[in-house]
């Protein structure tokens, strides 16, 4: 599939249909998931606030998916030097940062009634997502601060790969750090012990968020391809 889509024309033809379809699927899944989620019985411990989970956890999942996509695109771009993969990486990063930010904000909103504080360092999951957010910010800062597009792309790719290798270690180290400080309040959200009545809407919303990410990603890649074409046409016109 990658080989077929590596051609920008074919990609544009494919994404022209795929993006709206994904968007419709995403809307349906998220609506279904959230509707089920709004109607779950209140948790015996967390009460109604458990419903934030159906936004918070899918956003966190999607932010990790986004980093994986960023790392994957960067790898393909670095190894095969393909312009489309670079456009994909560039288009992916702000989306990833947005989903990560959404996860952080909803996590904080959830924490207020649960812990009585907007932010609690005792939750390893939140801390990992925060570090992920900083990784996205670093990527965007590096890319934005290099004027030469080709060089900026390359530097950003290398950084994304370094981050991709580092990410599991960061995750491990934060989890491990957390188990060492387990005096603080710890909440296990979305663990495997979750009752099916919570699990179903969570999975639906997760699939919906992923589809929404996919749809927006495709649209942003299309925009990036068109932007590059416009630039090169303007340059040709100026030199002609």
């Amino acid at each position: 599939m990658f080989a077929a889509l590596a051609n920008p024309h074919r990609f544009l033809a494919f994404s022209r249909w795929a993006a709206p379809i994904l968007a419709v699927v995403a809307t349906g899944l998220i609506a279904w998931g959230v509707w089920l989620g709004l109607n779950v019985p209140p948790d015996y411990q967390q009460g109604e606030t458990v419903k934030i989970m159906f936004i918070h956890v899918p956003a966190a999942w999607t932010s990790m998916l986004a980093y994986a996509c960023l790392g994957g695109s960067s790898f393909i771009s670095l190894v095969f030097r393909h312009a489309l993969a670079d456009a994909a990486a560039k288009a992916c990063a702000p989306l990833g940062a947005a989903f990560t930010g959404m996860s952080l904000v909803t996590g904080s909103l959830w924490g207020r009634p649960m812990w009585g504080a907007w932010w609690v360092w005792g939750d390893a999951r939140l801390v990992s997502v925060l570090v992920l957010f900083l990784l996205f910010l670093g990527y965007l800062a590096l890319r934005a601060s290099i004027d030469d597009e080709a060089k900026g792309a390359r530097a950003a790719e290398i950084l994304a790969l370094v981050g991709l290798i580092n990410l599991p270690i960061i995750k491990f180290s934060v989890d491990w750090w957390n188990t060492l400080h387990q005096g603080d309040s710890i909440m296990r959200a979305g663990g495997s012990a979750l009752a099916p009545v919570y699990m179903t809407p969570l999975l639906l919303a997760g699939a919906g968020f992923s589809a929404a990410f996919g749809a927006m990603w495709l649209v942003r890649i299309r925009a990036e391809i068109w932007r590059r074409r416009a630039n090169s046409l303007a340059l040709q016109a100026a030199l002609a």
Binding site: V131, L134, G138, L159, G163, I170, S173, W176
Partner: peptide
């Protein structure tokens, strides 16, 4: 800005 998030593991260890 680029490097500090990557330093999480050694800072923790």
């Amino acid at each position: 800005v680029v490097v500090l998030p990557l330093l999480t593991p050694p800072v923790i260890f």
